[in-house]
């Protein structure tokens, strides 16, 4: 089974091609160039360099959120378009799950965190056990303080991944002794992680038609907070 996976959920963009779970090729770019400039040339180069024509791709996968509003949309739109043109199914992968797959190697808890501003994070928790990854929570948005309360209940190493990892690490070392920061080269989401997660989801029958594929945005608790400037002079 040949799978094309894409991630453009943050400032980096990547594309990966997997065949029966084996990574055949991957491109990754993390510069100031926009995804609309880098993504399709990467996909094109990937297919050319692996000598796999697009018509041979069985499944298209994407990190569908959480993440940057425009980045997620670009990835989802690209996958929707390609899958629709080829008449093939899609897999919607959580960005948090994709980064957990990139990092998970040791038994323990993987805590995927993406910075959502104002001391809030997008988060999910995964248990890694003998090479298997088990999701413990749905993707959610919460404050780093609330997350700390939950994590203090776990008596095992806790591996932080994602762009919110160092923010959390600075708050949690001390109060949470098991906390670990995963090294930078495996800390962030990559298309290969999207592909690894998608491969398993596909085997479980969790595919979608291109028409069904949508961006997934998590609503922040701070959305209740006042955004506008107060009319009467106030700090």
């Amino acid at each position: 089974m040949k799978l094309l996976a894409i991630d453009s959920s943050a400032t980096a963009a990547s594309a990966a091609l997997l065949e029966d779970g084996v990574l055949r090729g991957e491109f990754f770019i993390n510069t100031k160039l926009t995804h609309s400039q880098t993504l399709m040339p990467m996909v094109d180069a990937l297919l050319k360099n692996t000598c796999i024509p697009i018509k041979d791709i069985d499944l298209f996968a994407v990190a569908a959120g959480p993440g940057s509003f425009t980045g997620v949309r670009i990835g989802v739109a690209a996958v929707k378009g390609m899958a629709m043109a080829q008449g093939k199914p899609c897999v919607s992968v959580s960005t948090l799950e994709a980064m957990a797959y990139t990092a998970c190697c040791f038994d323990g808890l993987v805590c995927a965190v993406m910075d959502a501003r104002c001391n809030q994070v997008y988060n999910a928790l995964f248990q890694v056990e003998k090479g298997r990854m088990i999701r413990l929570t749905p993707d959610r948005a919460l404050s780093i303080a609330e997350l700390a309360k939950e994590l203090s209940g776990y008596q095992q190493p806790i591996f932080l991944v994602g762009d919110g990892a160092d923010l959390c690490y600075n708050h949690y070392t001390g109060p949470i002794p098991g906390i670990r920061l995963v090294p930078a080269h495996v800390r962030f989401q990559h298309a290969s992680g999207v592909g690894a997660a998608a491969y398993i989801l596909a085997k479980e029958g969790k595919t979608l038609s291109p028409a069904q594929l949508m961006p997934v945005y998590l609503r922040l608790p701070q959305a209740e907070r006042e955004l506008k400037k107060k009319k009467e002079g106030k700090q």
Binding site: S68, F69, T70, Y217, R219, L220, A223, R225, L227
Partner: peptide
């Protein structure tokens, strides 16, 4: 905030 987020 949701409106603002969706402007990118």
């Amino acid at each position: 905030w949701d409106d603002l987020y969706s402007t990118g």
